[in-house]
Each structure stands twice: as C-alpha cells, then as structure tokens.
C-alpha cells in the first residue's frame, strides 16, 4: 500500500553499493497534486533515479537538487506550484502545489 514501497529497498541497495544516494519524499500537497504524500523518488550521484514525486512534471528539478544534497549532505525542502515561475516552467501544470523533502541516505 505504501506508495513507492520497493523504492526504499532500492535506496538501501544503492547506498550499500557505495553510491551517493538521495531520497526525495512528497511531504505536502495542495490542490490536484499528481502523486500522493509519501511518494518517493530515489536518486544517485550520477543522476539515475527510480520512482516519482509528480508523475514526470518536476522530476528533473528534484534530480538536479538531489545532486547538491548528495554533495553537501544537508536536506532541502523544495516547493513546486503554479505560483512559482520555475515550477510553471518545469511544468506542474495540473494546478496543484507540492512540497518535496530531499535528504541524503548515508
């Protein structure tokens, strides 16, 4: 039932293999958000990723931010929505707003 349940196994596997890993999680949504709270995206240091936090709309931006998180170890809270010019450009066009927490797995 947990959205993206197997992604946590992937995150553990990648981290144990010595890859830099970040875990992104949808923590809040407003309006018609494409993915429910608790959805995960797992990203490695080379920008490979599994899962989704928005069904494709903002994954690119999250993956880019994840590289920073992997590099400096500090978590980030990202927000995407129609009011946000950047988010509009990357295309959360469903009219919703989401907040994504990105943390390093180490």
């Amino acid at each position: 039932m947990t959205p993206g349940a197997d992604l946590l196994s992937i995150a553990e596997e990648w981290a144990r293999a010595g890859r830099g890993v970040a875990l992104a999680t949808v923590v809040e949504t407003w309006g018609s958000a494409p993915r429910p709270v608790g959805s995960h995206l797992v990203i490695d240091g080379d920008g490979r990723f599994e899962g989704s936090v928005s069904g494709g709309c903002v994954e690119g931006a999250v993956v880019a931010e994840a590289a920073e998180v992997i590099a400096d170890g500090a978590p980030r809270m990202l927000e995407f929505g129609v009011a946000d010019e950047t988010a509009w450009r990357v295309g959360l066009s469903c009219g919703g707003r989401i907040r994504v927490f990105v943390e390093k797995v180490a």
Partner: peptide, 14 residues
Amino acid sequence: MRLELLAELNAARA
C-alpha cells in the same frame, strides 16, 4: 536518512 534507520525500516516492512 541514516542507512541503519533505512535498513531497520526495510526489515520491518519485509
């Protein structure tokens, strides 16, 4: 997330 915490979580889920 600490890897030990993630491992403990995955063990609980399994």
